[in-house]
Design a protein around this nucleic acid. Structure first.
Length: 798
DNA sequence: GCAAGGTC
């Protein structure tokens, strides 16, 4: 008998084949698709792994023309299944020939059931009467795989249908509303505007937060803080009341406390407290943490997937925060002994018992994200990949490390009838913190006090403060909020956020909605509220459960949804003109910078080149061909006022909280002044200026480019200050690099400067000497910060 | 040129 086992992905195919064949499977390929064959119990068995969904729902081709499709009709069109992975479909068809039994062994979840059904549909085209069984496993351990293949079940048709209902509903709502909004606002082709069950409520979160910030009325309040002195050590204590809303009351409290000269200790406690290690990483917590290091959600996932593919990390798409008992913590530590973190791994291996922190979510999909191999920096060459690997490896180390022990003390003191609270927080034993340096703690000392004793008052101060609006979302916060609201899945949330950026609905590291993002949500809330609310997902989930339980049919659920959608489309169409105008106006305003400084008739607007680079151009193109380069990072807004020096429009650039206004004209004296380094020493015609590459890196280049190709690299961080001096050794310009809290760094811009070569040699010599003496060198941790900020006006060579 | 869900 011939049996075919179909899995969801290559990895599980390899694993299942090697378990069932005791490692003795034969590898082959059909086209580009790997297969694994072996004999078992007298049968010929072949395992093939797919690539997730191999089919996708779409409308028949005659509905492809957006401008000529009646939307109310589109709502009721039955979508067809189109092949998205032809190589896998071909391979399945070939494998289906002469097969007696198919065992669906895709992931044990709703989508897995549908993915298996898709494969089966293809197989049945070749072998209509093939027998079908289902293997259900929730982890890829030998025991569980053996068990699931010894107790095969049946394919769960209603479960697959529930997933298919989701596909139909998402496509209908997504396509109808996306087309409507794009047509109404005349944004067609690559500039289309999209709407969806997950993306629109996510965008609404951002827009609503922005409204809260806009509507926020800050309120003044005062705080009163006293400084006490216990035998020479002073400590601060805040007034118990916290915020005083009336200045006079704060002042009165301050004066009463000050007049008292001493505070009487009312309460004093001191306790040692255990602080547990952080929980193992699931996708959400990993992305949030990587985001704190400066990585975008999509970028962090891309790197994690790449590290998974090359065997350094476990599967990065998981909800689980509890290591399964089958994962050998000791084994992982032993592999890390081969890594850059060998010393840390050794220390943790020496523990009497190795146990891990359990996280709040225990799921069976995949283990939490952990390092599957011990990597050295030379194994992972890209610095951004290395930092992600190190983050995951250190997180793992922390989860198996001992608790941190801290001493927490609290005191209450009375001074002149006013009560003050002081607290101390001191790390006694860093425990896991030693292995996980990403979270810094703020320690505060509180001297030991005795209840009833008097301590002198050194000072009492009242400080004015203001209430703050809620903060904008970071990508990390947003992904956590999405998880809380069940918006999207571990595999899609980062993609949804990326989509909001791609559509230019949002911008910035600290996420702000753009004009079009606000206008879109504004219009949808009024006319199609459902699609802006997370509850739509919750309802769909319920419907899917009911289909899976056999309480309702796919047809019932889909028809009901189509009816609602038809109503929504009707309402939208009635208001099409107004909705379109609102969004168009917002788009225009969003891209407007000022009047054209060349032709005087058109306006300068932010445009995108074919390669996605943004630049300023005149809207009278091609009559006026005026363009100006723009920084590629940060938010671009109109500077509103014309440049005082040359009268051209100005731009406001917001990047990581820093706002800068500068003139768009690269020949403007204000711009030249900011970017000028010195006269070019190569061509004698141009001058050397700070310019930015396409990827946002700054360097020094000649203004005579492309005639003169003189360039020099620059440090990517810090403010570059021009000097009049030239290098004594090579004659190139000297610049100062200014960073807060550091002395100015004086450098010659020439990388080949003989002085630098000498220094390098000396450093190498020192290093050799140190190695020769076998002196253990302190590990110097490099502080790595996110991508550089462009602080000079951009004058890229044009 | 639509969505969201898998996976690379």
């Amino acid at each position: 008998m011939r049996k075919l086992i179909v899995t969801e992905k290559l990895n599980t195919a390899v694993r299942i084949a090697s378990i069932l064949s005791a490692g003795k499977m034969k590898r082959a390929k059909i086209g580009r698709v790997p297969t694994f064959s072996f004999p078992r119990d007298g049968h010929d068995v072949t395992v093939v792994g797919m690539r997730g969904h191999i089919l996708n729902l779409d409308y028949p081709d005659e509905f492809n023309d957006w401008s000529h499709t009646d939307l109310r009709r589109l709502v009721w069109v039955e979508p067809v299944k189109k092949v998205t992975e032809p190589a896998f479909v071909d391979a399945l068809k070939e494998l289906a020939r002469g097969v007696d039994e198919v065992i669906v062994a895709t992931d044990f979840d709703r989508e897995g059931e549908l993915i298996g059904t898709e494969a089966l549909d293809v197989i049945r085209q070749v072998s209509p009467d093939v027998a079908v069984r289902r293997a259900r496993y929730s982890s890829l351990t030998r025991a569980e795989i053996e068990e699931s293949f010894a107790n095969l079940a049946e394919l769960d048709v209603p479960l697959a249908e529930s997933a298919e209902s989701r596909q139909v509903v998402d496509l209908a709502w997504g396509a109808a509303l996306t087309r409507f909004i794009s047509l109404a606002s005349k944004q067609l082709g690559k500039d289309f505007l999209s709407v969806g069950r997950v993306q629109s409520p996510t965008l609404a979160l951002i827009v609503n937060r922005e409204r809260e910030i806009e509507d926020f009325a800050p309120q003044d309040f005062w705080t009163v803080a006293a400084t006490f002195d216990k035998a020479g050590s002073t400590f601060p204590a805040g007034h118990e009341k916290g915020r005083f809303w009336v200045q006079g009351e704060a002042e009165a409290a301050r004066e009463r406390a000050l007049a008292a000269k001493a505070g009487k200790v009312l309460e004093y406690t001191r306790n040692e407290r255990e602080e547990w290690p952080p929980a193992p990483f699931n996708t959400t917590s990993f992305v949030a943490e990587a985001n704190r290091l400066g990585y975008g959600a999509a970028q962090a996932m891309r790197i994690a997937e790449s590290l998974y593919q090359s065997g350094w990390l476990s599967y990065p798409r998981t909800d689980n925060t509890v290591y399964p008992p089958t994962l050998s913590l000791k084994g992982v530590l032993q592999r890390l002994e081969e890594s850059e973190l060998a010393a840390e791994a050794k220390e943790l291996l020496a523990q009497e018992k190795i146990r891990a922190r359990r996280g709040p979510v225990e799921a069976t999909d995949h283990p939490p994200i952990y390092p599957t191999g011990g990597a050295k920096k030379s194994d992972i060459k890209r610095q951004d990949h290395w930092r992600i690997y190190e983050l995951v490896a250190r997180r793992f180390l922390a989860t198996v490390a001992p608790s941190s022990i801290v001493e927490v003390s609290e005191a209450k003191l009375d001074a002149g009838g006013e009560t003050f609270a002081a607290d101390g927080y001191v790390v006694k034993d860093p425990g896991w913190r030693k292995y996980y340096p990403y979270w810094t703690v703020r320690e505060s000392a509180l001297p030991a006090l005795a209840v009833g004793e008097d301590v002198p008052v050194v000072d009492v101060a009242a400080r004015k403060d203001q209430t703050q609006p809620p903060p904008r979302y970071s990508q990390g916060n947003l992904i956590q909020e999405m998880e809380k609201l069940s918006l999207g899945t571990k595999s899609t949330r980062h993609e949804i956020i990326q989509k909001l950026y791609d559509r230019e609905y949002v911008e910035g590291k600290v996420i702000r909605p753009t004009g079009s993002g606000k206008a879109l949500i504004g219009a949808l809330e009024v006319h199609a509220e459902k699609i802006t609310q997370p509850e739509m997902t919750a309802h769909l989930e319920q419907d899917m459960d009911e289909i899976a339980r056999g309480v309702r049919t796919q047809k019932e659920v889909v028809t009901e949804s189509q009816r609602m959608l038809e109503e929504v489309v009707e309402i939208l169409q009635k208001n099409e003109a107004a909705i379109g105008q609102e969004i168009e106006a917002a788009l225009k305003e969003q891209n407007y910078v000022g009047p054209c400084n060349k032709c005087g008739q058109g306006t300068l607007v932010v445009l995108k080149s074919r390669r996605g680079r943004r630049f300023l151009g005149c809207d009278r193109y091609p009559a006026c061909r005026n363009t100006h380069p723009l920084p590629q990072i940060g938010i671009i807004l109109s500077g509103e006022q014309p440049c005082p020096a040359c009268g051209s429009p100005m731009i406001k650039l917001i990047d990581r909280g820093k706002t800068e206004i500068f003139c768009v004209a690269s020949e403007c004296p204000t711009v030249r002044e900011k970017s000028l380094i010195a006269a070019c020493d190569k061509c004698a015609e141009g001058e050397l200026r700070i310019v930015h590459s396409a990827r946002g890196k700054r360097f020094v280049g000649c203004s005579n480019y492309p005639k003169c190709d003189n360039t020099f690299p620059l440090p990517q961080r810090g403010f570059i200050e021009r000097t009049e001096s030239r290098c004594e050794a090579c004659g190139h310009p000297i610049v100062h690099v200014l960073m807060t809290g550091r002395k100015p760094w004086v450098i010659c811009i020439n990388m080949e400067c003989p002085i630098k070569a000498d220094r390098k040699k000396a450093k190498a010599k020192r290093a050799r000497a140190a190695a020769g003496e076998k002196k253990p060198r302190a590990v110097r941790k490099k502080k790595v910060k996110p991508e550089p900020v462009a602080e000079a006006a951009v004058t890229a060579p044009s």
